[in-house]
Design a protein around this nucleic acid. Structure first.
Lengths: 332, 332
DNA sequence: TAATTTTACTAAATCGGTTTACTAAATCGG
DNA sequence: CCGATTTAGTAAACCGATTTAGTAAAATTA
């Protein structure tokens, strides 16, 4: 038995599509459809388990009840968890998540954004690697509902949900210095995006502030395309240089480094300390000990949802820039 | 400037929609559109950056180039990683992923499936908590392209990508007995699905096989809705009962248990050993030591993709049941 | 009772594409 | 040079919903 369309329903009941559509959309009373007819329709659609074709609906209405979620890597726990929270929030409002990972690749990002737009997503939640890209520019120009999180480009006016990158990193690093750190190296992904730049800034500020002074040679950059090998190389370098503490600007590299330490530098897992932006569960019980800056994942998701909903309900407001305060987690 | 439709393009160029559509779909030659006209169209769409409306396309063609990915929790690394691999595989073929998490809840699963179907996803990849649900039944009856993974219901004929649950668990447990385990407890989610049942079976087989015999009291079940507290309670119980090894039927509970051990039973992290189905990175360096059964995530994704693609290209084949061999990972 | 309003419902346009069935003009074969 | 074929294109139907603009009959009002 093929799926019934509104036309079939109408035919079966000897009514017009219009009438059926009105009833289905709860406009029966408003449109003066007799309650007898309404009941007839409702009973019948229940009987045949009528399911409206959302595609047709979307075409006519111009909206799809879909939100595009664009991140560097959906399997990164940070993005996965936010994704899950977004899914839950939006589920209640009848919106669903279409996902796309970019691997920090600008071209891929362009393509995914284009795909999202062609599929008429109603809004976008984006941790972009290149906020000045063409697609993003034209979306912003067109006032498309769009929220950036995690990454910022101060030259671009938009909705941002961020955390206090600089000050939090500064606090974390200062804490580790209070705990005895004296020679602190840093490993970061290429700081294409301001968030990472600011985290590195925070690291520098802490060192200067605490009269340690910073050494450019202790700041090591790992290319996105060469994560594992790059991290291994830079970690080795820093260990050779005799650091007692290593600072990471995001969870991804920190997790790899923990694995490397436990695999190749087992003798040093107690002497070397880590500081990391982002928090992952395993920091709680892994070595080296990690001081981490935990981003308020639930708030990030909550505010993203709220801003998007406000826009969609066309309480069209000014661009918002929300800066959340992360939690400093020190272990033992 | 509003987005141009095919109608606009046609009007601007003094052509018919048909002609433009033919050119856009590379049917220019086949449909005898002169190369001059073809060039004119192609140049113009480039100039105005024409983007086809995928919704309209979908409505007419009856397919959306979307795959529904339904799992208990997209933020579980196991499902997140498979999701990522699927995303990559399908990206190349022009398909995209719509996601839905069920939290092992049958009603939610029904609803998400309905949503997927109404949105006309072209196929589904599902780790279902209830393979006998109404939606699934009608999808199967309608021969909808559908692959189950991770979970099985032997009463339901369908495509399955599974791993050898029983034998792998048996091997893992036997290995731990060889290493000295004598009193082995087990903690599992409610074994609603056969995969979990089989893993528990494997555990029992190993015990019997190695002449330890199993004690029903050492098999502890945690409710899905009460994961953290439940695991804490059952872990405490097993420790009180004096087990030297705890077996987990999936990563979720194992990870929680590691945290609990490091937080509340620090003195026992070396004396108690873990065995876990599923592998997560942190097992490599966390305590208690874990013998884990690593599911071949890449193969799961690869075969799912292949089966779906075969069906979509209507090399409509018989239902397949693929059982993959996991890798036993023993540490130190 | 005639004019007006309300009730109950429908025909047709629309969203933006694809596809079928057609036509007029140009070219070809004999 | 005439009929057949090819070339180059178009009009209109269609996918499945929503929505606008309407109509005929019944009820109300003056």
């Amino acid at each position: 038995m093929k799926k019934k369309s509104i036309k079939d329903i109408a035919q079966d009941l000897g009514l017009s599509k219009t009438t059926v559509s009105f009833v289905l959309n709860n406009k029966g009373d408003e449109k003066n459809i007799s309650s007898k007819t309404q009941k007839r329709v409702l009973d019948y659609i229940r009987e045949v388990n009528y399911q409206p074709n959302q595609i047709a609906k979307s075409l006519k209405k111009g909206n799809t009840n879909t939100i595009g979620y664009l991140v560097p890597d959906i399997s990164n726990p940070f993005f996965a968890k936010i994704g899950r929270l977004l899914e839950d929030h939006f589920w209640e409002k009848g919106y669903h998540l279409l996902i796309g990972s970019t691997d920090e690749n600008k071209d891929k990002e362009e393509q995914v954004l284009n795909m999202f737009v062609n599929r008429q997503v109603d809004a976008l939640i984006v941790a972009s690697c290149f906020i000045q890209g063409d697609s993003i520019k034209s979306l912003l120009a067109a006032n498309f509902p769009l929220v950036f999180f995690d990454r910022e480009d101060p030259d671009v006016e938009a909705n941002y949900i961020l955390v206090e990158n600089k000050i939090s990193m500064k606090n974390a690093v200062e804490k580790s210095i209070q705990n005895g750190a004296r020679k602190l190296g840093l490993i970061s992904l290429t700081p294409d995006v301001y968030s990472l730049k600011n985290r590195i800034e925070g690291y520098k500020m802490a060192l200067i502030n605490k009269d340690i002074g910073f050494d450019q040679d202790l700041i090591r950059i790992v290319d996105n395309n060469d994560l594992k090998q790059g991290t291994e190389r830079e970690l080795r370098k820093l260990i050779e240089l005799g650091v007692d503490t290593i600072v990471f600007t995001n969870n991804q590299i920190a997790v790899i480094a923990i694995w490397l330490m436990n695999t190749f530098y087992k003798d040093k897992v107690n002497s070397i300390k880590f500081v990391s932006f982002d928090n992952v569960d395993q920091f709680d019980y892994s070595l080296p000990k990690v001081i981490s800056v935990a981003q308020p994942i639930d708030k990030i998701a909550k505010y993203s949802t709220e801003i998007i909903e406000d826009i969609l309900n066309s309480k069209k407001s000014e661009n918002k820039r929300i800066e959340l305060t992360p939690k400093l987690i020190e272990r033992k």
